[in-house]
Structure formats: C-alpha cells, structure tokens
C-alpha cells in the first residue's frame, strides 16, 4: 500500500453482504475468491469467499482506497488479521434475522475492535424498517462490554446505505487523526 492509499475492511459472517457492499463502491470489478459453500446451514448460497474480496476506489488527483472483504466463515479466520493489518477502519456487516446473530456479533467485534483503536461501524441488514429492538439489543450487549461503535440498520443493496457506513467510518477516522496530531 502506498502513501496515497488507505484501506477499509469489510467483515462479517457469510451472507451478510460484504461482497455486495464492496461491489457497490468499487470502481473496478470486485475481485472475489469464491469457493463452493459447504456450510449451507449457516447461509443458503452456492458460493462464498475463501480468502478475500477486493475493490478499489480511485480518488481524483491521485491515490485511492483499497476495499477488502474478509471471508465470513470462521475456518478462514487466519485471513482476518492479515487483511486487517494497516486498515484505517472496519465495517462489520451482520444479518439481523440470522438465529446466530449474537454469536456473530461477538466473534467479529472481538476480532476487530482492538480496544477501540480501529474505528468501527456496524451495519445490521434484513431488519424491518420499524424494528429497532434488534439494534437496541446489540447496543446493550456491546455496552455491557464497554464497546460502543455506531450501529445502523442497513440494506447493502442500496448504495446510499453503504455510503452511510463509509461516512460514519470516515468521521471516526478524522477524529482519531485529531488525537494523533495532538499527541
């Protein structure tokens, strides 16, 4: 990664929409490393990411933003720290109607929170528009552990929702930058 680039990481369980979100933002066709999904119980789709998804946003005047998506299955979690290295921030995507939502929340937040050092945003998909119970439950669960990232109900098929997650992340990165300059 060069000095005129930075990295945003997308993570979350299989089927949460990481590839969709990266595709929505990327200027080039998203590079995926799909394999046949052998865990249909977790997510009913044919293919899933084994190593990474990759997209890129060109910034006018030079430079760009690398978008990485982690594999969603825990058996590939050895890839997570590799992809998280030097990331400016992480967007955690969750499936709000999945029966293992609480477990997913714990696994992915634990893996990337880093005591709040890395800016994080959580996007919860597949919720009804007036369903704030799930968001509040997630908020309370994380607060009990003194973790308080912004949490949004999103539909990653809508580009505006993906942009909202990115904007919330950028705002946090900027504030972190202020702290760095102050030190």
């Amino acid at each position: 990664m060069t000095n005129d680039e930075f990295k945003i990481l997308f993570t979350g369980p299989m089927g949460a929409g990481k590839t969709t979100a990266i595709t929505a933002l990327s200027d080039q066709e998203c590079v995926s490393t799909d394999v046949v999904n052998t865990d249909i119980d977790q997510c009913d789709k044919e293919m899933t990411t084994a190593a990474l998804d990759y997209g890129y946003i060109n910034i006018p005047g030079g430079g760009g933003v690398r978008l990485y998506g982690t594999p969603g299955q825990e058996r590939f979690r050895f890839m997570w720290p590799i992809l998280a290295n030097n990331a400016a921030g992480v967007i955690v995507l969750l499936n709000g109607e999945h029966p293992d939502l609480d477990s997913h929340l714990s696994v992915f937040v634990d893996a990337f929170w880093e005591q709040g050092a890395m800016p994080m945003v959580i996007g919860v998909g597949r919720l009804a528009s007036e369903d704030f119970e799930v968001i509040e439950r997630i908020t309370d669960t994380l607060l009990e552990r003194h973790i308080s990232p912004p949490i949004f109900s999103v539909d990653v098929r809508e580009k505006d929702d993906v942009l909202l997650l990115v904007e919330a992340l950028l705002c946090q990165i900027e504030v972190n930058e202020m702290g760095m300059m102050q030190a």
Partner: peptide
C-alpha cells in the same frame, strides 16, 4: 483537538477529502 480536521493535515486527511468528493459525500 487541533482542527486537523482541516482536511489534508492528518495521515489520511487529504485522502478522506478526496474520497468524500469522489463518493459525493
């Protein structure tokens, strides 16, 4: 906090400004 803020001064400042412009944010 220093107004760094002032896009361009931080490590990612200029990139963030460019990214926002690129994404229409």
């Amino acid at each position: 906090p220093q107004a760094s803020a002032e896009e361009g001064k931080g490590r990612f400042g200029g990139l963030i400004k460019g990214l926002r412009s690129r994404l229409g944010l």
